[in-house]
Simulated assay, not measured.
Amino acid sequence: MANAVVLLGLCLYLSWVDYRHRRIPNRALSAGFLLISLMQLAFSSPLEWLNAGLFAILCLFVFGLISWHWPLAFGMGDVKLLALICYGLGVRDFVLVLTTASLSALFVSVVLLLIRKVSLTSSLPFAPFMTIGLGAFLYMCEIS
């Protein structure tokens, strides 16, 4: 849970930067990785840490291939942010956050297309939607 709160704070900052400048700074991602690594080492078992790390590498590889094939649709900053969230939350929680983020991005995209604010060739920053996914995840954790 503490990892999710740290990631939410980082994502709030990255969402603002991604929305304004359409880039995600590597320094912020590196600082987040260092902080999450220290928290993983302190609060989780070595097996949990290893599983999260291996899945984050797999996530980096898969989404990196997507970014390589469609660089205008999905940037490498988004790929690194997804890998960091995967590393901090673990597999199950990451899938929930990614699903919520993707559904919210789809909804916003359809609404913007319907009111003719964007065209089919336009792109949206994805970090704000990951923040929405993390916020929804934290809210659901508090309810249950």
Score class of each variant (00 low, 15 high):
35 L>A: 11
1 M>G: 06
52 A>L: 05
115 I>R: 08
37 S>M: 07
95 V>G: 00
29 L>Q: 04
122 S>L: 08
85 I>G: 04
122 S>V: 09
81 L>N: 02
49 W>S: 05
30 S>K: 08
36 I>H: 13
107 F>I: 01
93 D>W: 06
17 V>T: 06
2 A>P: 08
81 L>D: 00
105 A>W: 07
50 L>S: 05
113 L>R: 12
46 P>H: 11
112 L>K: 09
20 R>Y: 14
42 A>K: 12
36 I>P: 14
5 V>S: 09
98 L>D: 09
23 R>A: 13
55 F>P: 03
77 G>L: 01
19 Y>Q: 10
3 N>T: 11
144 S>N: 08
51 N>Y: 14
64 G>L: 06
4 A>G: 11
143 I>C: 03
96 L>H: 11
75 G>R: 07
42 A>Y: 09
101 A>N: 02
107 F>H: 05
94 F>W: 14
94 F>K: 03
103 L>C: 12
25 P>C: 02
82 L>H: 02
23 R>P: 07
142 E>D: 09
85 I>H: 08
34 L>A: 15
118 V>E: 11
17 V>E: 11
1 M>S: 06
106 L>S: 13
37 S>C: 09
103 L>K: 10
94 F>L: 08
45 S>I: 00
129 F>W: 07
73 A>W: 04
88 G>P: 06
102 S>I: 10
85 I>K: 14
138 L>F: 00
141 C>A: 11
75 G>E: 14
82 L>W: 07
39 M>H: 15
117 K>Y: 04
63 F>N: 02
90 G>L: 10
67 S>I: 00
67 S>P: 03
58 L>A: 14
37 S>R: 03
12 L>D: 06
103 L>N: 08
88 G>V: 01
3 N>L: 00
51 N>V: 05
34 L>E: 09
112 L>Q: 09
10 L>I: 15
36 I>V: 14
76 M>W: 07
128 P>G: 03
54 L>A: 08
92 R>H: 05
133 G>R: 09
94 F>T: 13
21 H>D: 10
16 W>V: 15
127 A>P: 00
112 L>C: 09
49 W>K: 02
7 L>K: 03
23 R>K: 14
7 L>M: 06
109 S>D: 13
29 L>M: 04
107 F>W: 01
123 S>I: 07
26 N>Q: 11
18 D>M: 10
17 V>L: 09
73 A>D: 07
76 M>S: 02
68 W>Q: 07
35 L>K: 06
15 S>V: 10
46 P>N: 13
20 R>A: 13
14 L>Y: 12
29 L>C: 01
65 L>T: 10
